[in-house]
Design a protein around this nucleic acid. Structure first.
Lengths: 237, 237
DNA sequence: CATAGTCTGTACGGTAGCACACACAAATTG
DNA sequence: CAATTTGTGTGTGCTACCGTACAGACTATG
């Protein structure tokens, strides 16, 4: 593992008791994920588990009609897939790499075995599962009641957080899929933010210019989920 | 425990290995919950855990603005609260009794201790957590894309299932809160179904007349969630 | 350098659910 | 049995987002 990638860069790994992290270390491997890469499809059982460092993994539900909606975006605060910690293996949605970056990879079997004998690891993963549940529940209300502008800002903040950069590759189309709306509708709200000088973008590339203002335009949901992660998993570094 | 309430009436309890269920038995108590009763508010740590028999418990998220949306309806296929199995105790939403009925009650501490030494119990509860995650994720897409008529039918089916009756007490208002829409909008779709002879209702009382037809008008979500419960927890009795 | 593919901009009618307003009837309460 | 509360019915204009259609601009590829 290259020295410039410290396990503490992932919040779940950072939350582990020192000796448990130590034993896990030799099984971790840093790999790079490319944007657009598909990590899992519905019902697929995965051989590996990923702990993101500076990449964002998005979970996307696709209806029979083809309509979609994002379930969650996972970054360095979490892992994929949480199903591994719950015993059910597969999950019924698509997982794709939203913005490229690095992750710690570990074999699913290894994690399973280790969490059987490491109470700290198991406890942490379950707390993460609960945080995920809150995250998804919040997505229900948010998608139902908050304006697209609110949701768009929130999504930008999320990607901003997880990519560890103000400047990321992301198309209107990809955002539209996650927010469950048409691409054109995204173009519209994105234009608003650009006119106000909060972001700039072109052809699959977005740059955050005024994050504080984005936070003001964002709904409560961003903060609520963040707080719940803090409550359950402690403060981020 | 009255003899007419068998633990097998709750699907999670029924899934336990015989000897584990046996040890749990003496700690179970059957109680009756009245519709409208509040079981938990956001952030509250509960002293008890409930395994419904013929009651429906609804989880409701309330935004700062007062708008609401249902996160899940829990019946004899599940438990409340799943947070107890994940270690984080509190959850950020309201839990109320949607339709009255019975539940098996057990002290939270007792369940915690027992699940530490009973692998079957713990495994079952975690699989239920995963199923819940799917349930909530489905609610995201469903609320986003499916017509209110679809969602209304689904809700009726769910309550129908969990109350073990075709004839339950439920107001338009309560349904509106769960589906995150106005009461008037519910009145409208309910009227449609009544005109078609699928249901009848008056003043907080709904009767399902033609369930097969309701299933046709319902979206795929009902079946998807049901299948996932079956995959993870086996077939229902 | 030409061509095809990707990404964004714009426009227009359509509609589901909204906010607000109010009428009415059944059930509960004093 | 009067009075209040609770639950349902109905209407009117409004708005955010949809479906569809198409045009222009940048970029990758042969």
């Amino acid at each position: 593992m290259p020295h410039h990638h410290n396990p503490n860069q992932n919040r779940l790994l950072a939350a582990l008791p020192p000796q448990e992290l130590e034993s896990l270390l030799s099984h971790l491997q840093v790999i790079h994920l490319k944007a657009g890469e598909q990590l899992a499809e519905p019902g697929e059982c995965l051989g590996h588990v990923y702990f993101p460092i500076d990449s964002a993994i998005s979970l996307l539900y696709r209806l029979e009609s083809g309509e979609t909606a994002g379930v969650a975006v996972i970054g360095n605060e979490g892992m994929f897939s949480v199903a591994q910690a719950l015993g059910g293996a597969a999950m019924p949605y698509w997982a794709t790499v939203e913005t490229s970056g690095h992750v710690f990879q570990v074999a699913a079997d290894t994690l399973d075995e280790m969490s059987k004998c490491m109470s700290g690891l198991q406890h942490t993963l379950l707390l993460y599962a609960q945080a995920s549940l809150t995250q998804v529940a919040q997505a229900v209300v948010c998608g139902k009641h908050h304006s697209l502008l609110n949701q768009f800002c929130q999504h930008l903040l999320l990607i901003n957080d997880k990519s560890l950069s103000n400047d990321f590759r992301l198309t209107h189309e990809a955002i539209a899929n996650m927010l469950g709306v048409r691409r054109e509708t995204i173009t519209e709200v994105a234009g608003e933010l650009r006119d106000q000088g909060l972001i700039e973008y072109s052809r699959g590339h977005i740059k955050v210019l005024d994050r504080p203002q984005l936070e003001k335009l964002c709904c409560e949901c961003y903060g609520v989920v963040r707080e719940e992660f803090t409550r359950l998993l402690g403060v981020a570094q």
